[in-house]
Amino acid sequence: MSKVLSGLASLAIFVTVPALAEEAAHRQLGPHVHGQGTLDIAIDGKKIEMELVSPGMDIVGFEHVASTDDQKAAVEKAKAKLADVLTVFKLPAAAKCKAEAANVENRKETHKPGEKDDDDDDKPGAPQHSEFHATYTISCEAPENVTGLETVYFTNFAGAQLLNVNITSPKGQTQAQMTRDKPTVDLTGVM
């Protein structure tokens, strides 16, 4: 009997330990504001790296997993639009920039890329937040001519109202905002 008990006890330990470990890992969620996205721009020499994070609401108008064909098509169309970086974020022609890489993902914000997704809130229609993450690598032949950036982001995506732009370059760091009324950002001081 005692053997059975201790066996049960060890089983219980075996079962609870991973659960405890999971409890111990702290949970955190990033902010999520509809209408507001973030555009990070890092400039170093001839390279420009940009990262865009936008709520799904801004881009496609819903944040659940696309279930109907229409929704799936909307997500794919948005991804294609976002992938064409130099059309969405126009740099001055004199800078002779070309896109080297673009990667667009539609992520659930509770999960980091590559992380195992084992909860059941991604059933079609289940309430959740999702975000579009786009990363871009751009190289410019004449980076000194990158004096500003103009975007059609707001005309392309009806739900978007504001982009917080964080900029870092060897000249320093700065912050700006692009809005529906002012879809430009001045980069004269940072190049």
């Binding site: 890992a25 702290h26 990070d40 890092a42 400039i43 990262e51 964080n166 870092t168 060897p170 760091q173």
Partner: peptide, 18 residues
């Protein structure tokens, strides 16, 4: 400078300590 946002995100997501 290109690594700024990457490192910033990694530190903000650092699992052992907030």
């Amino acid at each position: 400078k290109l690594a700024t946002f990457k490192v910033q995100r990694r530190i903000n997501d650092y699992p052992e300590e907030p």
